[in-house]
Design a protein around this nucleic acid. Structure first.
Length: 521
RNA sequence: GGGCGCGUAGCUCAAUUGGCAGAGCAACUGACUCUUAAUCAGUAGGUUGAAGGUUCGAUUCCUUCCGCGCUCACCA
């Protein structure tokens, strides 16, 4: 073989040689008797004698993750389901052709083996192979075996390699799957019906965010990728679905960051005849159950409520509830002078003074005196309190100015029956008693339009059909949105959202100049 | 978008003040029938992200661009 040929070409040639040995190079299926995790679960406790006395014949498939050749025998580690099992291949056992095949195998190849279980001299459970079946070739070399793949860009761009090399990454996504299952199970247990509402909407409503725009050719109309399913789910409540939920993607055309990906998964649910207090209770139960379901293992068959979060621990069985104003008072920094009193939130002058006091001792909090007071209070809350909210905390009573879809408090119209759940310094859920007065809703949309004219691109648009739906009468209802990605982060101790999204958004790969030339020629 | 940092072999990383681009793993050849980070002997592998500039000489210094990370602002 010429020395300048690269690995890809060499392996293609090996593939030809493997075919010459009578193997099918890309066969359709392989009949196996066990998976590797099954064998490890069932036979890890068996002694060498037990395995010798009652021989266990197995056929398994896997990817070669380590290979050691010693003249006329060799070992491999096969990986399947994130676990590894050793195989022992001896020329005497597999024959001339079988051993020729063994010598043509590379790291990363998929093979099937038939043989029996035994323990090596060092005691490792191993398959004594009688027959190797070639399944599929790895033409590109896997990353280095000691350090694996650590380059974060490559891990995200080539997640398939990341998953092969890093078992802990696989674990994160298995837990994410358990999380979503758990959420569905809790919803179903409470009698909620799962539905799917439009991802492409003529008006991007239900949240405050900039949308992605797309275009339908036949109808010649612009459509927005949804920023929330909210207004459609509530139309269903009008239609008589008293308990309804959806788990699906939302799209927001905003910046990226450790907590933000342009597409993210949201669980959203609505319950008729319930208010925000009922929704707090339900959501608390939902999340605690999710923590238990994700942490279930042999030691903890029912799961646990404590999960690791960096150098801290989050206890999902211990919740705190504070109003937004109480939270600002509670976490008010000493360096910003005397703690605010409730009356300070009542006037724009009072709030302005609070911001001034806070900014005197802290990095500047953006403040626009022209914006509604409620908006400033909410910003102040985030600046003062958010960083302290590691343990699960329900913050409730949000300003009406930033809650155009929530029902007002009967005794304080500037405040709404709305809550958000915080944990690990992140907002993970948002819920409220749904505004169901169509005329009030129209006025709220109109107030949002003023904000839009003031330059707030993200303020709500008027949705006439939604107002019409409410005009047919929506029962009293509570609704909640839960950020599934962020919950997955918290439950897997992942500190960037990209680690819980299989294929996070990246800039397109720039093709190298040489390949561009090839493309042009 | 702003600020800071990074980009060297397939992977993980070196390279003294600006002075011959190196190692381990992976690969290739050979030895080895219980190894496991297998071992032993040998071989090959590079437009140092790209383009320009300064210099006798640039992986190193400067400029621009590309990509990534962290961070700030908007957003969940």
């Amino acid at each position: 073989m010429a020395l300048d040929e690269n690995i890809y070409e060499l392996r293609r040639q090996k593939l030809t040689a493997i075919e010459a040995l009578g193997q099918t190079t890309y066969r359709s299926k392989y009949e196996f008797t066990h998976t590797i995790p099954q064998i490890l679960a069932d036979y890890s406790e068996k002694t060498a004698e037990q395995l010798e006395n009652s021989r266990v014949n197995v056929r398994v498939a896997g990817r070669i993750m380590a290979i050691r050749l010693m003249g006329k025998a060799g070992f491999c580690h096969l990986q399947q389901g994130g676990q590894r099992l050793q195989i022992y291949v001896k020329k005497d056992a597999v024959g001339e052709k079988g051993f020729e095949l063994y010598k043509l195998l590379d790291l990363g190849d998929h093979i099937g083996v038939a043989g029996y279980l035994f323990r090596t001299r060092t005691g490792e459970l191993t398959i004594h192979v009688d027959e190797i079946t070639f399944l599929s070739k790895d033409l590109l070399p896997l990353p280095e075996k000691w350090h694996g793949l650590t380059d974060v860009e490559l891990r995200y761009r080539q997640r398939y390699v990341d998953l092969v090399m890093n078992p802990e990454v696989r674990e994160v996504f298995l837990k994410r799957s358990k999380l979503v299952q758990s959420l569905r199970r809790t919803m179903e247990a409470h009698g909620f019906v799962e539905v799917e509402t439009p991802m492409m909407q003529p008006i991007a409503g239900g949240a405050v965010a900039r949308p992605f725009v797309t275009h339908h050719n036949t109808l010649d109309m612009d459509l927005y990728l949804r920023i929330a399913p909210e207004l459609y789910l509530k139309r269903l409540v009008v239609g008589g679905f008293d308990r309804v939920y959806e788990i699906n993607r939302n799209f927001r055309n905003e910046g990226l960051g450790w907590r933000w990906n342009p597409e993210f998964t949201m669980l959203e649910y609505y319950q008729a005849y319930a208010d925000f207090h009922d929704m707090m209770d339900l959501t608390q139960e939902l999340i605690m159950q999710a923590a238990k379901d994700v942490t279930k293992d042999k030691e903890h068959p029912d799961g646990i409520t404590r999960t690791k979060w960096g150098d801290q621990e989050i206890d999902w069985g211990n919740w705190q509830r504070l109003t937004m104003r109480e939270a600002i008072i509670k976490f008010w920094p000493d360096s910003s002078g005397a703690k605010p009193g409730m009356s300070d939130f009542a006037s724009s002058d009072g709030v302005k003074k609070l911001v001034e006091h806070f900014n005197r001792s802290h990095s500047h909090m953006a403040y626009d005196p022209g914006e509604p007071v409620g908006k400033t209070i909410a910003a102040l809350f985030e600046a003062v309190a958010e960083e302290h909210l590691t343990q699960p905390t329900i913050i409730y009573e949000f300003p009406t100015a930033i809650s155009p879809l929530s029902k007002q408090k009967p005794d304080e119209p500037d405040w709404t029956e709305r809550f958000e759940i915080y944990a690990g310094q992140m907002e993970i859920a948002n819920g409220f008693s749904e505004l169901n007065d169509p005329e009030d809703q129209r006025r709220r949309f109109e107030a949002q339009l003023k904000e839009r004219e003031r330059g707030d691109e993200e303020a709500h648009q008027m949705d006439e059909d939604y107002v019409r739906a409410l005009s047919y009468g929506m029962p009293p209802a509570g609704g909640v949105g839960v950020g599934v990605d962020r919950l997955a982060m918290l439950l897997t101790d992942s500190h960037t959202i990209r680690d819980v999204i299989l294929f996070p958004l990246l800039r397109p790969e720039k093709s190298s100049p040489s390949s561009e030339n090839q493309a042009e020629s």
